[in-house]
Amino acid sequence: MNPFKLLLCTFFSVLVAGISVPDRTTDSTSLGRRQATLGFASSKWIWTTNTAANQAHAFRKDFTPPLGKSLIAAEVIIAGVNHLTFWVNGEIIGSTVTQAWAGRFCVDLDPSFNVFAVNASSTNTNGAFMATILLTYSDGTTDTLVSDSSWLSNGNAVPDGFAEQSFDDTTWVPSTVRATYDESGTPYVTPLIPANTPTLSFADVWWIWTDVLSSTGTVPKSTRVFRRTWTPPAGGEPSSADIIITADNEYTLYVNGFEIGSGTNWKVAGHYTVNFAPGTTEILVAVTANNLATSVAGVLMVMEVNMLPGGRNNCTAGVYGVTDGQWRSTLDGIPDGWQLPGFDDSTWPFVVEEGFYPNASPWASSVSIAAPSPPVNAF
């Protein structure tokens, strides 16, 4: 943004403050629970003109409210084809790793001027991201921003400080619309959105195993363990998680060190609800997987984490976690305490992504999902 524009916005913020100043200490529950339904129907898949794979791209959208209005908060849903990090006013809010699962974030805003920014990359030439931002004013009214060509982009690099309010983006260009939300024949899928009633699916999730897979995918009879730790988005406190999981042949699931459940039939995924202790700052998912004979083997999991209502808008945020190449597994025995938070798995190798559900052979058939088990406390 042009520094002069920022100065002008600061001047108007003083003027607006004299008209309508939100009490930043007021409990946001006075506004009531967010009732608006967030969706992507009006949003566009956008990118830069540079479609090269594995190239980082930067995007910015600034917003100044109408005269007499003061912003207090935003509720955001956002999804990118691959790796995406979302920023507001120079602070990282959260990230996503695939277009199939959107992130949902609650953000407190400055009254008069805010910058929404994205740092994204794609492993292929179909890079794009999509966002919807529901803005709330101090009087309870709302506006909606969507991803479209009005977002400014820089397709050649991600400059230092690009997400800051004072960053000069006057040389940036309008983003390129690659597809509409519901445009048929595009490579973009409809993202799942975290919700108070979770919607879980294995679509486009990786089957994973250790890094010793043969060219045929066959591995010896063995027991392997897998770990992945997630950190909630900034300001988010996990309240619960819904998990669907299966493994060929058997699995036992642990969350934050507590045994949650197990299964012995890969065609039927277990469905678990896990409650977290107040103040939880990380979520560790650990899995024991048994391959009962020399054969193919794999683990498949999706987790939706819902956050406690937070921020001045009292909205509920949520994120997804899935099996992918960021999990780790060991081949050198199973050490004591491997399933506990704080265990150092930094020397464990990353797993192998075997293929997407439902097309990865030999699991090229639907996995049914069992009825939810009774909720389990991971504390």
Rank of each mutant, 00 (worst) to 15 (best):
S346N: 14
D160K: 12
A120V: 13
L213Y: 09
L135S: 02
S20M: 03
N156Q: 11
N377A: 12
G298F: 14
P66M: 07
L67W: 02
D143A: 14
I334Y: 01
V305A: 12
D182E: 10
G311L: 10
A241I: 00
E353P: 11
L331Q: 11
G333A: 03
A117K: 04
W207M: 09
S43Q: 06
D62S: 04
G90D: 05
M301F: 05
A297H: 11
L292F: 10
T216N: 06
G235C: 07
V21A: 15
A269I: 04
S368I: 06
W338P: 11
W363A: 05
K69S: 06
V173A: 12
W209Q: 04
L135G: 08
I334W: 01
T223L: 04
A269W: 06
A128P: 14
F63A: 05
F105Y: 15
G263M: 04
T294D: 13
T48D: 11
A52L: 06
G18A: 08
L300C: 03
A360P: 04
A297C: 11
L6G: 06
T273F: 01
L192T: 10
G342F: 12
Q35V: 05
P238A: 06
S149D: 04
S20F: 03
F4W: 03
T51V: 08
D182A: 15
F343E: 11
P174Q: 01
F343K: 08
D182H: 03
F113A: 12
G235N: 07
V376A: 05
R224K: 14
L284G: 02
R60T: 11
P375K: 03
Y137M: 07
D324W: 10
V322R: 12
G18R: 00
T218G: 01
P22Q: 08
S214F: 09
F59M: 13
N314K: 05
T210H: 09
D168E: 06
W209G: 03
M130T: 15
A120S: 14
L340H: 06
K221W: 00
A269P: 14
S262G: 08
S122Q: 06
G257K: 01
N314Q: 14
F258H: 10
W172A: 04
Q99E: 15
S70P: 15
A102F: 03
N377K: 07
T144R: 01
P111S: 15
V189Q: 14
Q55P: 09
V21R: 10
I92K: 14
V158M: 09
L308E: 15
I334F: 02
N50Y: 14
W172Y: 04
W87A: 02
D345C: 07
G140N: 05
T29I: 08
T210M: 06
P341S: 13
V212C: 00
P191R: 01
W206G: 01
W207F: 15
A163R: 02
D160R: 09
I244L: 11
D110V: 00
G68T: 08
T64L: 02
G39K: 01
F129K: 03
T25K: 13
A364P: 00
Q165K: 13
V376N: 05
S215Q: 13
N275S: 11
F116W: 05
G94D: 09
S30F: 11
T347M: 09
A234G: 01
A371G: 09
A370P: 11
L31G: 14
